[in-house]
Nucleic acid binder design. Structure first.
Length: 276
DNA sequence: GGGATTGTTTAAAT
DNA sequence: GATTTAAACAATCC
C-alpha cells in the first residue's frame, strides 16, 4: 500500500538509475495492467528517452521525451523497480522496459489492482482524477490546509484520505497523523478547533517527512526502486496495532471502521469531544 | 470459501 | 448542485 512517502522513495531511487536512458524495448506480459489501449501504449513508449522521475499524490510519473508521461498507480501491491543485473522477471512482473546495457524497469503487482498508462501532457491535464487532486500535504501551508478542511461536515479521517481534498494520504498516515495530533478519526472537521487544525497540519507533515527519511514503510510487501524494504513501519504508533497498548498512556488501542476503512486509535489520547 | 485487504469510481442519499 | 456516505470493483491471500 504505497502512499506518499513510499512513492516519493521509489521516485528518488529510480531517478538516477533511469534518467537519460532510452526505452529500447517493451515486454508487456500482462496487457490488462495498461489503462487504455495496450497497442497504442507500446507504440508510444518505443524509443522514448526518460528525462525525469517524479511523484504527484500517489502517482509515480516518468517524464519522457516527446513529451509524454508514463504514469503508474501502484494501488496495493504495485512495485516499480530496477532489478540487479541477471535477475529474471517473476510471476507478478507485468511490464518490462528494456533500457539497454542490461538495465530494466520491472512493474510487478501481485494483486493486479495497479495500472500504468502513457499520456500526453494534454491528456494528463484533462484526466479528471489528476486535475482534481488536492494540494501536496508537504507544500500546503497551514492557511491552505485550514482553508480546504474548515467548515466541512465530513469526518476528518475521510477528508484526509480524500485525494480531492489533499493528495497522497492513505490509511497508514491518516491514522498516524490523527494519533499524533490527538484527534479522534470520527471528529467532524467543522468541530476541530484552530489549535487542533494547526496540530494536525504540523503532525501530518512531520510523519510524512520522517517516513520519507526512513525510506517509506514496508508493511506487507512494499519495496523501493532497488527492491529493498523501507523501515518506517517500525515507527508506527497505532496503524495495525489494535489491542496493543498506546505508546503514550498504555490504554489498549481500539479499531473502528471509518468510511469503510479500519482505523486504529487510542480511545484515551484521541477521545471524542463531548461537546453539545 | 468467506472475509479482509487497498484506493478510486460510481451511485445513492442528504 | 454540492457535500457526504456507502457500495462496487479490481485480485489475491489466509
Amino acid at each position: 500500500m504505497p502512499e506518499l512517502p513510499e512513492v516519493e522513495t521509489i521516485a528518488a531511487g529510480l531517478s538516477p538509475l533511469v534518467c537519460g536512458r532510452t526505452i529500447r524495448d517493451i515486454h508487456l506480459v500482462y496487457p490488462r495492467a495498461v489503462r487504455g489501449d495496450d497497442q497504442e501504449f507500446q507504440r508510444r513508449l518505443q524509443g522514448r528517452g526518460i528525462s525525469a522521475v517524479r511523484r504527484r499524490a500517489k502517482l509515480l510519473i516518468l517524464d519522457l521525451d516527446g513529451p509524454l508521461h508514463l504514469v503508474f498507480h501502484l494501488k496495493m501491491t504495485g512495485k516499480v523497480w530496477v532489478p540487479q543485473k541477471g535477475v529474471q522477471p517473476g510471476k507478478h512482473t507485468h511490464l518490462i522496459l528494456d533500457l539497454g546495457d542490461e538495465v530494466y524497469v520491472f512493474f510487478d503487482d501481485q494483486r493486479r489492482f495497479g495500472y500504468v498508462t502513457a499520456l500526453t501532457p494534454l491528456e494528463l491535464e484533462s484526466w479528471d482524477f489528476y486535475r482534481n487532486l488536492g494540494p501536496e500535504p508537504l507544500q500546503a501551508t497551514l492557511q491552505e490546509f485550514t482553508g480546504i478542511i474548515q467548515g466541512r461536515k465530513a469526518r476528518i479521517k475521510s477528508l484526509l484520505m480524500d485525494q480531492k481534498v489533499i493528495a497522497g494520504i492513505g490509511n497508514i498516515y491518516a491514522d498516524e497523523a490523527l494519533y499524533m495530533a490527538g484527534i479522534h478519526p470520527c471528529t467532524r472537521a467543522v468541530d476541530l478547533s484552530v489549535d487542533q487544525l494547526s496540530s494536525l497540519h504540523h503532525n501530518l507533515q512531520q510523519v510524512l517527512r520522517e517516513a520519507i527519511l526512513a525510506g517509506g514503510s514496508s508493511f506487507r510487501d512494499y519495496r523501493n526502486a532497488l527492491g529493498v524494504a523501507g523501515l518506517f513501519q517500525e515507527n508506527f504508533k497505532v496503524y495495525g496495532k489494535k489491542g496493543l497498548p498506546c505508546p503514550e498512556c498504555s490504554t489498549n488501542l481500539g479499531s473502528i471502521r471509518v468510511s469503510g476503512r479500519s482505523s486504529c486509535f487510542c480511545p484515551r489520547c484521541q477521545a471524542e469531544k463531548s461537546k453539545s
